[in-house]
């Protein structure tokens, strides 16, 4: 049930990433990627989702030249990774899932050295590192060994390192894992701004609300295959109901009955409303007014993508059985 992804390409510009018929079987016989074909347009904020072992990290590994593919082709901004590896690699920045810098090196050296590997002279790399580390609130820690940084700081360091050569395509593999909410918010503000300035971003995350909030197109992988490739908008439009949590002014003794939507009481002053997606919210508020129930605040119960994601994975597994 895949739909055409939202197309951002202009003037027939090559896609930021084109993966065609990618297959990867490890030496021990494990098939990590059975068949993946996908295209990420320039300027996109693209979600690559899947359960553990779905093949996301393997695919990213292949794109970033960290894993040898079994077959298939990868093109980055029109440059084939096999025939023009230098051009292709120069366009990518990777924020990997695991911390993979030398923890005994000072923060600034880690960032500047990475620039050096892309041929950026020390002075230029230093200036860029200063800007990035200030933006990511790490400048004060620049002389510290990476060993002494907190988990959130280490994640931000990896972002700074990945951006030192100003890549046109940034791949974020679980960038906010283990990061507290405040830092996560500031990281997303930074990454959104980066995307708005033209950097294509591919995101894998287990925090599905992040994907829902930021990504325009989405691919869901399961067992090494693409099971969904569409726009976030179209995917979310597939939801039949939406659940809201309502905080009430007064405690509610009994839930009134209605056939217009489903009501659940969480505690005396909190209720959940499951509303058909095609019904107006006015129906719900009209009902509460009629029963003298005063609603003080309202929010979505959880991210909508999560429900769809679980549903799709279950469906895929059933089909395989």
């Amino acid at each position: 049930m895949s739909e055409e992804p939202y197309n951002l390409s202009v003037n027939n510009a090559p896609p930021a990433l084109s993966v065609q018929h990618l297959k990867k079987t490890y030496e021990n016989g494990v098939v990590a990627v059975e068949e993946i074909s996908l295209t990420v347009q320039q300027g996109d904020f693209f979600a690559l989702l899947g359960a553990n072992g779905a093949g996301k990290s393997t695919m990213i590994g292949v794109v970033c030249s960290l894993v040898n593919k079994s077959s298939g082709t990868i093109e980055i901004f029109g440059h084939d990774l096999d025939t023009e590896p230098h051009h292709a690699k120069a366009s990518i920045g990777l924020v990997p899932q695991e911390f993979n810098f030398n923890i005994f090196e000072p923060v600034i050296e880690i960032v500047i050295n990475q620039g050096g590997y892309y041929g950026i002279p020390y002075k230029v790399a230093y200036q860029r590192a200063e800007v990035l580390l200030k933006q990511l609130d790490l400048w004060g820690k620049r002389k510290e060994k990476a060993l002494n940084l907190s988990g959130g700081m280490k994640r931000r360091l990896m972002i700074a390192r990945a951006l030192i050569h100003r890549p046109k395509l940034l791949i974020l593999d679980e960038p906010t894992a283990g990061v507290d909410i405040e830092i996560r918010r500031s990281m997303w503000a930074f990454l959104s701004q980066l995307n708005h300035s033209g950097t294509t971003i591919i995101l894998t995350t287990h925090y599905l609300e992040e994907a829902e909030n930021f990504c325009r197109n989405i691919v869901i992988l399961d067992q090494g295959k693409v099971i969904e490739n569409t726009t976030m908008k179209k995917l979310l439009s597939g939801l039949q109901t939406e659940t809201f949590i309502l905080d009430l002014k007064e405690p509610l003794a009994h839930l009134p009955n209605t056939n217009d939507f489903k009501l659940f009481q969480r505690d005396a002053k909190t209720i959940e409303v499951e509303l058909d997606k095609h019904r107006s919210l006015n129906v719900m508020f009209g009902f509460f007014s009629q029963h003298n129930i005063c609603v003080m605040s309202m929010r979505n119960k959880s991210n909508r993508l999560e429900a769809l994601f679980v549903k799709l994975i279950k469906k895929s597994k059933k089909a395989i059985r």
């Binding site: 970033c64 695991e98 590997y117």
Partner: peptide, 17 residues
């Protein structure tokens, strides 16, 4: 140690020949 701790990846993803 670069290989074991993963920081060889800094070089492998770069265009350094």
């Amino acid at each position: 140690s670069s290989k074991m701790h993963g920081h060889i990846q800094e070089l492998m993803i770069s265009p350094t020949p």
